[in-house]
């Protein structure tokens, strides 16, 4: 009986190890337990500004030059949010695209003028290695993003 319990325990531990090995931790990892919906943050960004949140979604874009940002899909269709991290502190790999992720960070809200928005979009295009057309910038606007402190991305 003891042998069976012991073997079962080892099996369970091995399985847990396998599951854990399928995701990779970045930065400080995840400490919060409750997930905040991205759509809720985007609906009321001011009420979340400066607050630490945990969000979840699929990685649909990665900074190609420095791995310093990713885009996560929202729980609502056609919506995504940028997660920005300090250059070098966390480096997201290009292979993260298409994988599910959990991110913990602080909500950041910026009101950008047309010029600031154009510069921001140009910078993003440069990091993606894509051509930039200023005509695609719709105008001044509010930029809501998460300053990432830690993440777990499935592999």
């Amino acid at each position: 009986m003891k042998k069976i319990v012991f073997l079962s325990l080892i099996l369970v531990l091995l399985c847990v190890g396998q599951v854990a090995a399928k995701s990779r931790t970045y930065g400080k990892g995840i400490q919060l337990t409750e997930v905040t919906k991205i759509s809720t943050i985007l609906d009321n960004p001011e009420s979340y500004e400066g607050k630490r949140v945990k969000v979840a979604g699929m990685v649909v874009g990665v900074c190609a030059s420095r791995g310093c940002w990713i885009y996560l899909t929202s729980d609502r269709p056609y919506e995504k949010i940028q997660v920005k991290v300090t250059d070098g502190e966390i480096v997201f790999p290009m292979s993260a695209s298409g994988h599910q992720a959990q991110v913990e960070g602080v909500v950041d809200v910026m009101n950008l003028t047309l010029e600031q928005m154009t510069n921001y979009e140009r910078h993003l295009a440069e990091e993606r290695g894509e051509a930039f057309d200023p005509a695609t910038v719709k105008g001044p606007g509010k930029l809501v993003r998460i300053i990432g402190l830690g993440a777990e991305i499935e592999e």
Partner: peptide, 9 residues
């Protein structure tokens, strides 16, 4: 294949 996503319709 990993996943798919629609950024717009």
């Amino acid at each position: 294949y990993k996943n798919s996503f629609q950024p717009d319709p």
